[in-house]
Nucleic acid binder design. Structure first.
Lengths: 245, 245, 245, 245
DNA sequence: CATGAATGAGACTTCATTCAT
DNA sequence: AATGAATGAAGTCTCATTCAT
């Protein structure tokens, strides 16, 4: 991100005066809003400039172009969110506590700015030929790093299962969160995000725990039995009513 | 979907000749590809026409416009996927088998056409004022319906936890799948999707099970079963040797 | 018009079978409706074809193109209207009666088909480079011929003034009629066209009569006097109130 | 009109710089020419831009679109013509003088820009669903207001007949003028518009006068006047010769 | 520094018209 | 005789981007 900043701010025109820095912040803020609301394609530099109250040309004198501005918006946002999680992480807490913290913070932080940014990242991040590609990947790695560390630590202490690749577990954690966030935006129904967060932690934690092989197998056995019995009973019932004689 | 079809074909110019139908199919195919690759905004009617090998005007004589074409692409794709899942679902299988089937099929079907369509739906579906909005919602409901039924059935038979809203469980299931799919596309590393599917099923199933199963009771059940089986087998064996014919 | 018909019907493809003639009539009818409703530019061959219930290609096999069709529509319409006036004109009536008949018929006939055709002629007739130019001029001459004859006759018998070019009198007659027709269409207020016609006849007839030089001059004198008196009185009044002493 | 102006300028991009205003004027001028020549539909933004010597994009940065430009053209033109008539109207003149002034000015002003604008207004004004509809109606009312006032005044002073609705008289006046203007444009023959104007005034005035003036009474009035004048002149003459200094 | 002004490139869309069948 | 199918040409409009002032 630092090299991004340098690139954006230095290659163009403006020395790093304090006024200049404020301008950059204003533009980034407006850009964040507009990109989040409209998505990359539908956002226009005109609207961003207008929200800042400057001319389009000014925007282009601080940023090389729309794409760079978008890249900066995304990276700033990632920075904030990463900092918030890294700073707040209860280092002395249990693995489960740390895990819960991350999930909770993620959901909270995302919803502060609506899910626009989130899906911006997801949609635009996917596009190849988008120049952002590399930096974005780096950011995403940094972003998921805290969770990865927690999970790895959990594996070492036997609290997290080791029979599944970490990458899959990451999907297992972030996937539902994104999904929940989308639903929260789509449905105007104001989901109680705190309640949802706690439930999600519980569900996820259940999935992440080492399989108590016995119990799981037993449960499976019970389920199979149960199914078999039900099917038998249904069949018996059918026969009875079908053949009254 | 049927009214979509009617709307698209016929209102414009071409009666339902056989050649006409083929053209429609060709355009839909090209549209699917391009929309999937580029997303709605970056896709151009020019490129779609060019891939079919016709002029843009031809495309517009079969579909009212870019948006309608996109809507048709999405709905056709949903139709396929829904049909595949509804038709293939093992109705006599256990809840777990059905669940596993859905997850597996989902991952497979999505990857046939790349993740483009998937994220197209997600990105475009999110945008309000997109006119597609309503039909899309309906399709998504139909799409997730099988899973919802399976989960609900599982809850009735005590195999799926009831302490969490179904909606959250849906996010819990589809979220990771989407995430996995994105990773699969992003990283060119060809993940073995079948293996991943099995692992995902296991993780998810663990999350969905009722919490705190009574281990002791389960063990007792198992023992009773075991005993019963053994007795049965012994009896069978005895019979077999008694009646060689 | 006859050469138009020949041109349209012969140069293309269709021999003059009775079926073919019916087709031509149908298309002309639909064309009349659409051109009248939409104006030349906004009318589309597609809509015309659709109203007839044939394909666009069929329309083009009977008429060389949109422009020719429009020309035919206009000329047919002129034919009708001219015939109606020529046939109905009371040859034994007085000049005033004949004049009144023409005005009345004009207003009636125009309103049968709405003012669309009327303004179509006026708008499109004006456009140079419209190919219709020449034929249209000829038609308009034929169209106004009855009126011109009546007026000329009136001049010979001393019932119509001779101090004004016939051309100007034509404008004097047709101008108000067109204006009235436009107002009738614009305002949905259903003007009683018959009453308006009678009033118009009276106004126009007054204008067309030879100036009884004495009377006119006298009237003018009276008006001037009247004005002078009023001004004087106003001035006196002002003075009185201004200078109370 | 003012809200039109505000709407057009400013909402798009350019603040009201001096250069900007000139551009607006240039574009309006070119727009006026092109719309007048071609009519609304056949006019193209490309041609307008080309005549100004700028790119199409520039035109669209000053006006929201073709329609708004056309609306502005029409309203500017109306403004000019209304101002010219309102400013020049001889307020102290007789009713006939005022009437003659309006007719003369109308014909002159219209011909300055050809009849294109005139028929543009008439053709486009007629089209329903044209968005211009409302503003246009208002403008037309303002435009005909001076004439209406003069006629009403004439009615009060007995110089204009009262047995016919004002609306019909308006058609009676504007109708022939439009017709004359069209003929003037169609026929390249350069009509002497001043002569025509005077003749038209005479014809129209004849139509507007109260019917059946009492010739006898008028003659008596004239004789009285005449006698009075003669007496006055004789007296004046006497005085003049009596007091030579 | 900031911006007013301009624009090239390209998007979607419409429609009269042609032609093989 | 009729038409299904296709399209070239053109139109309106949008927007990121540049540059002289």
């Amino acid at each position: 991100m630092d090299e991004l900043k340098a690139e954006a701010n230095g290659t163009r025109r403006h020395p790093a005066g304090p006024k200049s820095q404020q301008r950059v912040r204003d533009i980034l803020q407006a850009g964040r809003d507009v990109f989040a609301e409209k998505g990359y394609e539908r956002a226009t530099t005109a609207e961003i400039a207008q929200r800042v109250g400057v001319s389009e040309a000014t925007v282009f004198s601080y940023f090389r172009g729309k794409r760079e501005l978008c890249a900066r918006v995304i990276s700033e946002w990632y920075d904030e969110i990463i900092a918030a999680i890294e700073d707040g992480l209860p280092r002395d807490g249990s693995v489960r506590q740390q895990f819960a913290f991350i999930v909770r913070m993620h959901l909270r932080l995302m919803l502060i700015h609506g899910t626009g940014l989130c899906s911006l990242v997801l949609s635009e991040g996917r596009t190849k030929q988008h120049a952002l590609g590399d930096e974005l990947t780096a950011l995403q790695r940094r972003y998921t790093a805290p969770l990865m560390r927690v999970l790895a630590h959990g594996q070492q202490t036997g609290q997290v299962r080791t029979d599944v690749p970490l990458r899959l577990m990451r999907s297992m954690v972030f996937g539902p969160m994104e999904h929940v966030l989308w639903e929260a935006t789509l449905a105007h129904r104001s989901t109680d995000i705190e309640v949802t967060a706690e439930r999600l932690v519980e569900l996820l934690w259940a999935a992440l725990q080492p399989p108590a092989p016995d119990v799981a197998a037993l449960a499976r056995l019970r389920d199979d039995m149960s199914e078999a019995m039900r099917r038998y009973e249904a069949a018996a019932q059918a026969k009875k009513s079908a053949i009254p004689i």
